[in-house]
Design a protein around this nucleic acid. Structure first.
Length: 294
DNA sequence: ATACCGACCTGTCAGC
DNA sequence: TGCTGACAGGTCGGTA
């Protein structure tokens, strides 16, 4: 479902609602597909911890967690000598921190609701919060992923909104793959998906099938600017709502109204009126204007 | 090392 | 009213 702007919007919405809250207990469903850590690790990592921050990295939502009553009582039970305490000080601080990582895949949603609310079909995890609400993970297609980490989760790739011009150029230099495939490669750039790749290429005037290595410095400079513009505008509008995407407050985004090529096959280009084309590239629909994009 | 392609899932919608 | 096939915002792992 979501790409960087949608995930950013969702993470911001969740931050408003759950930061400062504590996870009291966790229920995990029986489908193993969404779990990227063992269910018992997920439960024991979340339970008793406080959510201190919710943010996005690439297309991942990251919950920074702190504190764990189970460990605190373990420390009380194992009184240490001053020397030992000093040696272990760093480690014990780190021990109380953890991260809960959620990737929404195509259809994943994180819902904050009353515990009495009906449990939607395809609910895979329910976290009961100290404030008396539920945080639920729902995902019909189960392409989403849930895992826990000690800290410092890093999916690799560069953040498209932070990367500088020169680094951006270097990512694509010498690559024979179509530029669209390179944009979708999360190991290069993290967070760009099918919609924003198409929209960025349109704004930069580059056809999706152009080999990355054939792009000039100027092409890549325009692409760098286009990617950042498109993502920033989309975040400002709360993302693109296609079919059923809504943010944490149940609000739809509005960037779909700004799509210039995505989903507009057969319609006139908004710049030159040429009919927008759709081709399949590495299994994904790619939309472009044959006149505006070279 | 790189680059395609199907697999992984369920739901929806168009066409017959 | 069904049935079938195409398609969907994303990764993975196998194979060429």
């Amino acid at each position: 479902m979501p790409e960087l702007p949608e995930v950013e919007t969702i993470a911001r919405g969740l931050a408003k609602r759950v930061v400062g809250d504590r996870i009291e207990s966790v229920w995990i469903g029986s489908r193993p597909q969404p779990l990227r850590s063992p269910a018992e690790d997920i439960a024991s990592t979340l339970e008793g911890r406080r959510i201190v921050r919710v943010h996005r990295t690439g297309k991942y939502i990251v919950f920074d967690l702190e504190g764990n009553p189970a460990l605190r009582s373990w420390r009380m039970a194992h009184k240490r000598t001053p020397a030992k305490r000093e040696a272990g000080a760093d480690r014990s601080v780190r021990r109380t921190q953890a991260q809960w990582i959620v990737h929404l895949g195509m259809t994943g949603r994180l819902v904050v609701c009353e515990p009495a609310a009906e449990v939607a079909k395809h609910t895979h995890l329910i976290a009961r919060l100290a404030s008396g609400r539920d945080l639920r993970f729902v995902d019909p297609r189960m392409f989403g992923k849930i895992s826990v980490h000690e800290s410092g989760f890093d999916p690799g790739g560069a953040e498209p909104l932070e990367i500088g011009k020169e680094q951006f150029l270097a990512l694509f230099r010498g690559r024979k793959t179509p530029i669209k495939s390179a944009l979708l490669n999360q190991k290069l750039l993290r967070g760009v998906g099918n919609i924003y790749a198409d929209e960025s290429l349109f704004r930069a005037g580059i056809r999706p099938r152009r080999r990355a290595a054939t792009l000039t410095r100027d092409d890549l400079r325009r692409l760098h600017r286009a990617v950042q513009q498109v993502l920033r505008e989309a975040i400002a509008l709360g993302g693109s709502s296609i079919s059923d995407y809504v943010d944490a407050d149940g609000e739809e985004g509005f960037f779909q109204l700004q799509h210039r090529v995505y989903g507009r096959e057969g319609e006139p280009c908004l710049v030159c009126k040429t009919v927008v084309k759709r081709v399949v590239l590495s299994g994904r629909s790619s939309h472009y204007c044959p006149r505006c994009q070279k």
